[in-house]
Design a protein around this nucleic acid. Sequence first.
DNA 1: GGCTGTGAAAAAGTTCACAGCT
DNA 2: AGCTGTGAACTTTTTCACAGCC
Lengths: 218, 218
Amino acid sequence: MSKGIPIATIARLPVYLHGLRLLTDRGVSVVSSEELANLTAVRSTKLRKDLSYLGSYGVRGVGYDVSYLTHQISRAMGLTQNWAVVLIGIGNLGQALAGYGGFSSRGFQIKALLDADPKKIGSIVGGQSVLHIDQLERVFSENANSIAVLAVPESAAQGICDRVVGAGVTSILNFAPMVLQVPSSVELRKVDLSIELQILAFYEQRKLANSSALLNSV
Amino acid sequence: MSKGIPIATIARLPVYLHGLRLLTDRGVSVVSSEELANLTAVRSTKLRKDLSYLGSYGVRGVGYDVSYLTHQISRAMGLTQNWAVVLIGIGNLGQALAGYGGFSSRGFQIKALLDADPKKIGSIVGGQSVLHIDQLERVFSENANSIAVLAVPESAAQGICDRVVGAGVTSILNFAPMVLQVPSSVELRKVDLSIELQILAFYEQRKLANSSALLNSV
DNA sequence: GGCTGTGAAAAAGTTCACAGCT
DNA sequence: AGCTGTGAACTTTTTCACAGCC
């Protein structure tokens, strides 16, 4: 049943959840696939196909109940439970992440902030005190099944990653712009803030190239 | 020739560039597809296939010249020219982006920082002074073909986006966790810091579900 | 021998077309 | 009549297998 949800679908479910939250805020209780698709910049057929992998939660001729669909997607994604997150690296990006509302609103609870810089230890960021990186193993042993979020400099990333894996963590989100090596049993995902910018540059370049080609052909 | 580079390939080229930069730093001058693939967490056949869309830049039996390949990928992606970037929204995330080395090292030059908060105007972030959002239209008219990077609150994002589009911008990178509406002539890409975390939660949940199923079956 | 480059096959993902329910 | 749910067709992406060159 809900065994084989395609990876591409899973990546879109959070976007649908966001659209549903907007509708909830507006007091909308029922939505059609067409309307929700417009809010989330996908085609309605794709949305319906995606939802069909989770089950049949709509009503034909009517649409989807917003709160019921929200619950079903959340459940499918494992967001009905609270997730413990440990944030490592409290630089600019780490501070941004610590204060980012999108985490707590989705059930992610930041259990600890770790940094190696003695000047940062004890300072309050996002409502809690920064701990020294030496506490890493203790923090993870006290918070089983935590997700580690790495916002450390590139040069430190692999070393910290190894310690995190050694502490038994099986889910890591990496913001450092580098490829980390982990055992295959560990789920690792990466966010590189500059990759999307480079992709934009590619499209912008092509646009400029096309318009100058157009000029030449006139 | 280089007309039809698949989108999936384009999204990986920045990752290859990063691997090549590592090799350059280590003084490596020639690399095989196998080695570069290991650095970038893809299969070597996929890497070779991707590179084949750009041209034949390797040498059979030998590998790829690191600096030559770097140049060819950069050229294909439009990174040999400098790109003007205007960063809007200088909160925690905006400050992180302003100080992020991954931009300048790839030819992206932050031309201006804009914010609506009077307390921030004139303060120095990442080496330059924050301007008031009123300057938006002037800034973009003085910097043709700029890319706009939005790191503003969700509630302000669509309004700012509309002004940016009105100022003639055709490439926008959005960090606000919402879907923006733009004309089809505008290239819009989005980075949502929490989506990857939600995807991780999905995998972690499945892992936990599987291990308890295993326990039950014993 | 070793490694690239690439058609062909396979897999994954998207869109279409329409059956099925309210 | 209106909107969901889904097999089937189509498109894109990945992987395979091996020819081609140093």
